[in-house]
Design a binder for these strands. Sequence first.
RNA 1: GCUCCCUUCGUCUAGCGGUUAGGACGCGGCCCUCUCAAGGCUGAAACGCGGGUUCAAUUCCCGCAGGGAGCGCCA
Length: 469
Amino acid sequence: MTVKTRFAPSPTGFLHIGGVRTALFSWLYARHHGGQFVLRIEDTDRERSTQQAVDAILEGMDWLRLDYDEGPYYQTQRFGRYAEQADRLLREGSAYFCYCSREELDQRRAAQVARGESPRYDGRCRQRTGPVTGVEPVLRFRTPDSGFTVVQDLVRGRVEFQNAELDDLILMRSDGSPTFHFGVVVDDGDMGITHVIRGDDHLNNTPRQMHMIRALGYPVPEYGHLPMILGSDGAKLSKRHGAVNVLEYRDEGFLPDALLNYLVRLGWAHGDQEVFSREEMLGFFDISGVNASASRFDGEKLKWLNQQYLKSSPPESLVGAFETQLRHVGLNPAQGPASAAVIEAYRERATTLRELAEGAAYLYGDPPKVDDAAVRKHLTTAIGGPLVLLARRLGELATWTREGIHGAMATVATESGIGFGKLGQPVRVAVTGGTVSPPIDVTLELLGRERTLQRLGGALSLTGSGGVA
RNA sequence: GCUCCCUUCGUCUAGCGGUUAGGACGCGGCCCUCUCAAGGCUGAAACGCGGGUUCAAUUCCCGCAGGGAGCGCCA
């Protein structure tokens, strides 16, 4: 049997971390087993579904390179099929019309809760023989009253439910549209889904869906219910607690593989390994190794992983995303050194491409942003002489290379009777405006001779020792 | 309220009857060092509680507590 899984988000909001993790595990399972992966948009709730959300989901999947073999399917385009299957269940006696109004149902539920009972539909329309005039009915599924249903879950193991606990859920709304449960079941059946991998908020829904699947004559798929991802504070992921659009991670300079790598380690491990290439993920992933407990989202670890990816990726492969970040912080890539060289010099100092762009800002604009405290501390009167000397030496260099720069600085330091560090830091402040940058020779090399001399000259006026000789 | 699920360092996890309970992030220290990082070494830090089963329980079983999910003409 060929494995076929699906990711079935509803476009009522953006694609967030929890959804991505579900999609990832489903995708991994299919790919690991050489199977197929389907994307299905569950947009039966026309009130809350938006095209914007659909676009965000597709863009997110694309950015993460979670490729699908079929779809995207849209449930709103399959209404005819749901009606067809609903008719069949009605004819076969597995479903019946219910004429209870929403108000009546609400009242009964409230009364049941008040009495300390479980709120559930009482099945009163099961015996109804004729229609109620003026009322558009809903179609309900006739759930068995006795016996039990076993979900043999890929991550939870055996979970047993008493059928008597389940009430008759609605298949078709009074406006003729299918409910989530019915759409899922018909679609999974029609699309030949063999393994349903989804969030564990659906575990309780599973026995009902299994009943429907059997009534429709489809083979019952295997189920794997994934634990939730909680916010860093342990609360459910919500808009207030980190449930942001996954595309925001892209916009902040995270790499898609790093995000996937972080997510795959939430609830799953392969020994002590932390960093997985896509190939390793696919090769090692096994749903039977997935944890049953919820885990928290830790942004610090994501950043660490992102830096690991920043450091191990070929700089050229990051150029496009890096230049997007430069523009985002208002810098023009054309006004600085080659992007690959900047990435190379800075990736050990940044956890995201955004940070990288911000850290390298002095390479792009004149004059650089200046840290006054650093200037006061390092650009002293005493350093004026050595800086003048250095400017001259740098001006005389035959070629502008880090080796040559380093040599010039070492010579000036020696001649001035100061340590390399006593010269290096003032130079750094002079050319970058701050106290943090890559090794000073690399920094100057990136900056270029013209800008270096220009900024050295500008700094001299701040030391109070006059201009360049 | 009822049903179902979950429980190892602060966090992510390894463990699948006998381990000095391992790794990673974060945190502290040291080394390296022109700054910041990166890197190396190192330290502190965990089996929720109570019963069983067993020669032996972090591990298996049952309670309890705590956390979570479901109980919609939402998905």
